[in-house]
Design a protein around this nucleic acid. Structure first.
Lengths: 360, 360
DNA sequence: AAGCAGGGCAAAAACGATTTTGGTTTCGCC
DNA sequence: GGCGAAACCAAAATCGTTTTTGCCCTGCTT
């Protein structure tokens, strides 16, 4: 049962105890268990044609040697990595977008339940992001790719469609004919406006996030639809696009309130960063957010509940969204037919930053 | 010069155009360039003993085929992954700690300059974090490991010391005899107190972050030293440990201000989250931060400049720190002798949340 | 008693690169 | 003109798995 101790073997044994972890490899396990390496492999991978006794002996040997199969070797042979890559884009690394943290948490949970690893890679620039994709695809370090911040027409998506590597995105494109999961941003826009209208507001401005992202188009569509439904005439001046500068919302506020006839009484913002900045901007003009001007955010950052006034915004079960995303990817890898697509609902969290319109 | 077209070859050619990316492999490149695969490898890896002409032909062939060497195969053969793993711990995924985003940015920059990839893995629980390390080490997916949030006595560090895989940490342990980079937290504590003393404060409370992390010990040491130097008697009641709950700082404020004789006039906080929460807590008690009570934070979150009053805090060149960390890891991988250790300086950013002490 | 099915395992062939080994030119030099 | 060295490249070994192939043996059937 035990391995014989020929001198040749002793030599090999003396070979690599190694630093640790990498000690031995499958061969050592085989020797210790007194079986061939192929049996070790089949035993450890749960194949049926191996005796229960043998399997136990192999498992024990592997355990006692601290054996884990070499990831490179296994990957090379079976031509799959059991790994999914999430690519983080530049704006997320620069600004504190908490968005993806909870998402990754859920994603990791779902993937590891399916026997897959999650790996994150960072792309520093948008251009390099594209090059990063190319490399990921070419070099074969993962079985599927996930990324977010989709644009209406997204070259990354177009490339991936032709690349042959399974992928999914957080957020959709206009075409939308691939695997994605997305917030129902349109209904966020709609619900926001409906809430403000119910509070008596008629002059509602949209402080939108950059329109290069798809979701902002959806949200704007929702806003416009709800405004129309409330019988409020569209006013292009009431839509301001905010970029990712520090004073993003504050600048928009200046633009809307200083030196114009009819300033808005309510602000609907594309994200919480804009909303908080806008509240600062209002305060600087001597206006009290929540009393003089209603403000509604989006995305519910952890700090949003702790500013003054606490921000009314839209919240989302990010971890749940991540899990659904993970299961979607697993389904794709298991060969699901057709594009997989899911919406997740958001809900309005009412706090103190929105209030009724002042009588004029 | 061109490859011949025997029928056997045609068969092979017909083999795998593949989905994309994985089309061909080194063999195709060799055939197209009219050389052997070993020459392709040596040409592409920049070895000297290959003719410039040949090298160009190979490069062109590789380019035109979109060839990238299989990561698994290359790794298997040369027994190094050219990859560094950063492990993100649970608290960072749960709360929005912007800390590591800039850090990762810098780290990636430095590593990629050295030909290494950065990969991030998430550990969901502290326990699983340890198990994650084990697996990373055993399975050999990277050449070095980096993690943060070190504790005074850190079992992860102890394990890595015996594991034989190069590693570095952000933050040190008490022992500190491994590779690390760390903020000079002690001087932060010292500078904070000195600043407050200079503003006339004598009753200075420390709202510390969890003491399970090393850095908080360092900061506390600095605080105590500076207090002693200013001739202020130590008062255990003036040190409150705050945990990562939402109201982290606000609770401490209640504890310090409600129903006690001599409340502090200044708060030095272990991080900005605590500081902002403390300011909320003060406001709830009718106290104006920056006027009635001075507040100083630490870590300079992006939002800290935009709360009211803007938070005085300590800032740090995170990206630079990441780059230094990356270079440190590269040095280790290049076989540097002895432990590598670096301090990074922080600087006090004075904004509006700290003010002079009220005359009593 | 021979044949057959099939469980259990060993041997060997991949996987796709890198590295070692060795062989063939070319060239310079005496 | 012969010899040695250098330059250049091909062939083959190798990394550590997984998977295919096929052998041996047991036990059951006819």
């Amino acid at each position: 049962m035990a391995a014989e101790d020929g001198p040749g073997q002793a030599q090999i044994m003396a070979g690599e105890p190694g630093p640790a972890g990498r000690r031995g490899g499958i061969r050592q396990v085989a020797r210790l268990a007194g079986v061939s390496i192929s049996t070790v492999s089949r035993a450890l991978n749960g194949y049926a044609d191996v005796n229960a006794d043998t399997r136990a002996r192999v498992a024990e040997a592997a355990e006692s040697l601290g054996y884990h199969p070499s990831w490179a070797a296994a990957t090379l042979r079976r031509a799959e990595t059991r790994t999914v890559t999430f690519m983080v884009s530049k704006p997320w690394t620069k600004f504190v977008d908490p968005f993806f943290l909870g998402l990754l948490d859920g994603l990791e949970l779902a993937l590891s339940a399916g026997g897959y690893h999650l790996q994150v890679v960072m792309a520093r620039e948008y251009d390099r992001e594209f090059e990063t994709i190319r490399r990921i695809v070419a070099v074969g370090r993962c079985d599927a790719l996930v990324f977010a911040r989709t644009r209406p027409v997204d070259e990354r998506v177009e490339f991936m469609k032709t690349a042959g590597l399974p992928f999914a995105t957080v957020g959709r494109t206009f075409a939308g004919d691939h695997d994605w999961i997305d917030r129902d941003t349109e209904s966020m826009g709609r619900m926001g406006v409906e809430r403000l209208v119910a509070l008596g507001h008629r002059r509602i401005a949209l402080l939108s996030a950059p329109l290069r992202y798809t979701y902002m188009h959806q949200m704007r569509d929702g806003v416009r639809a709800a405004l129309a439904q409330a019988g409020i005439a569209p006013d292009p001046a009431m839509e301001v696009e905010c970029y990712l500068s520090r004073a993003t919302g504050a600048e928009a506020v200046r633009q809307l309130f200083v030196g114009r006839g009819r300033a808005p009484t309510a602000l609907l913002c594309g994200n919480d960063m804009i909303a908080m900045s806008a509240m600062e901007g209002l305060a600087a003009l001597g206006l009290v957010p929540g009393q003089d001007v209603a403000v509604i955010g989006a995305e519910d950052m952890p700090l949003s509940a702790h500013v003054t006034p606490a921000l009314t915004t839209f919240s989302l079960d990010l971890e749940g969204m991540g899990q659904r995303l993970g299961r979607m990817v697993l389904a794709r890898l298991a060969g699901a037919p057709g594009p997989l697509q899911e919406w997740v609902e958001t809900q309005l969290v009412i706090r103190q930053s929105d209030g009724p319109a002042r009588p004029e």
